[in-house]
Simulated assay, not measured.
Amino acid sequence: MNAVSAQDEFSKWAKLRRQHDKAMEEHDKKAAAVSSSRSSFDTKATAIRWTSTSGLRLALQFWHAKTPVFTYPRGWFPWYIEWLLGFPRCPYGGVSINVWSTACATVIALVWDVMVYLIQSVQQVRGGDQKGEKEKVNNDRRKEEMRI
């Protein structure tokens, strides 16, 4: 359309404009269809991912709410701590699956943080050793230059 003058060759320009508009309309329809399909896929994928992770966990916690993960002799802790360990519906003297899963998730998060900290500190030490070696080499070169 840029190569054709709208004033000099109007009929040719109008024909190209109609073809362009038709192609743009088809493009917009296809883009809308792709967007709709993508949105549908994203919704289904999110639902499947949630169901297979959080949904499964919630189902297990609901199903085994009255079953203790493990028991301890009753009276080891004050009643309010026993109530918290059995929250929400586990009998006294037992640890509920909700409390146990929360404790496991907390321990996993803490171990992950410790691992990241250790890796970063080792990398910093190695980086510091390399810098120290470079400075030592540079100092040795300066001494050599001063002798000459």
Rank of each mutant, 00 (worst) to 15 (best):
M1R: 02
M1I: 04
M1E: 00
V4Y: 01
S5W: 01
S5V: 00
A6E: 06
Q7M: 03
D8S: 02
E9L: 06
E9C: 07
F10W: 05
S11A: 03
K12W: 01
W13F: 12
R17E: 11
R18E: 14
H20E: 15
H20N: 15
H20Q: 15
D21L: 12
D21G: 07
D21Q: 09
A23E: 14
M24I: 12
M24H: 12
E25K: 15
E26F: 11
A33F: 09
A33E: 15
V34F: 10
F41L: 10
D42H: 07
T43I: 04
A45G: 04
A47V: 00
A47E: 07
I48T: 07
R49F: 08
W50T: 10
S52L: 06
G55P: 04
G55M: 03
G55R: 03
R57S: 10
L58K: 13
A59L: 11
A59V: 03
A59T: 11
L60S: 08
L60T: 06
Q61T: 05
Q61D: 09
F62Y: 08
F62H: 08
W63V: 10
W63T: 09
A65G: 00
A65C: 02
A65P: 00
V69M: 06
T71G: 03
T71A: 06
Y72P: 03
Y72L: 03
P73F: 10
G75A: 04
W76E: 11
F77W: 04
E82Y: 02
E82W: 02
L84G: 00
L85Y: 04
G86C: 03
G86V: 04
G86H: 00
F87G: 02
R89N: 13
R89F: 13
Y92R: 06
G93T: 06
G93S: 06
G94I: 08
S96T: 06
S96L: 05
S96R: 05
I97H: 05
N98Y: 07
V99S: 06
W100C: 15
A103G: 09
C104S: 14
A105E: 13
A105Q: 11
V107I: 15
V107Y: 11
L110C: 12
L110A: 14
W112Y: 11
V114M: 04
Y117A: 02
Y117P: 00
L118Q: 08
L118F: 06
I119L: 07
I119D: 12
Q120G: 08
Q120C: 10
S121F: 04
S121R: 13
V122I: 08
V122S: 09
Q123Y: 05
Q123K: 13
V125H: 10
V125Y: 11
R126W: 01
R126F: 02
G127I: 01
G127H: 09
G128N: 12
D129P: 00
D129A: 09
D129L: 14
G132D: 07
G132N: 09
K134S: 13
K134Q: 12
V137R: 11
V137T: 12
N138H: 12
D140I: 12
R141F: 12
R142P: 04
K143D: 07
K143G: 04
